[in-house]
Design a protein around this nucleic acid. Structure first.
Lengths: 132, 132
DNA sequence: ATAATACCTAGAAATTTGATAGGGATTAAA
DNA sequence: TTTAATCCCTATCAAATTTCTAGGTATTAT
């Protein structure tokens, strides 16, 4: 049960954006340089974050990406749910499992899912960049 | 961040063993039949669980698998850590990450790791088969 | 003896992940 | 008004991992 690099990389990028919150947009090459990630791969992650309304972008020369809300109002949970396409650790949590009532293990996944989200929703981007 | 089928299947098999705890050994074909899993694949999962001392087996005709401890003394956490080869959601939690001190995201993974384990260690096999 | 079983290892098949590539649209600035 | 820097979009490849299959060996109750 590993987090994919999408989640890890994307969160790093979000930290970078948070660090410069209020200073205008950061370009893709800049973010890639700071985080040491491939531009083209990172671009795809940023497009997901944008689709989910966590960041926004301006196009054209001197354009770039920026947070859509203040760092203290964005949780790590939101970011990871966006990048990982949900944090459901088993499929039956997303689709509605029709064996829910008889399944002996369903309760485990649902409890764990709740705990994971509670934990991650309790951490804001601001905490990360300010070192708690 | 999905649990692999090893975890899901293996936990189901453990439930089956728990349901018949004290009644002697269950054969692989029997367990596979009850859980609707491939015998050969399940066999590999059981061998992992055995290596980690959660179950034991007797060989030869009328042999089979059985829990090494009572269902109330085996936690879901133990089972999943065995099958998933640890529940570290990122690699830097297992190996020692040398950037630990400067990494902005390390704290997130370590908090989440603690929560996941706490949650799963708090659920026993007995709870599962007795429906809480 | 025999048949039912666990044990072991190799590898095929399928899926997912991580990354690359190239071109199009937009826009600030020279 | 041109240019260069940027975001945007989509297709595809390579590598890794996961899931599953196959075939044989060792053991033991009957």
């Amino acid at each position: 049960m590993k987090l994919s690099s999408k989640g890890r990389y994307g969160l790093k990028a979000m930290c970078e954006l948070a660090k410069h919150y209020g200073e205008g947009a950061l370009s893709l090459p800049y973010i890639a340089g700071e985080t040491l990630l491939s531009e083209k791969y990172l671009e795809q992650l940023l497009s997901v974050l944008k689709k989910d309304n966590l960041i926004d972008a301006t196009r054209g020369a001197s354009g770039g990406y920026f947070l859509k809300r203040a760092p203290e109002e964005i949780s790590v949970g939101e970011i990871l749910r966006s990048l990982e396409n949900g944090l459901e650790i088993v499929d039956c949590l997303s689709g509605d499992c029709k064996n829910k009532s008889t399944c002996q293990t369903y309760g485990v996944w649902s409890r764990l899912y709740r705990e994971i989200n509670k934990c991650l929703d309790g951490i804001s981007l601001k905490e990360l960049v300010e070192g708690e």
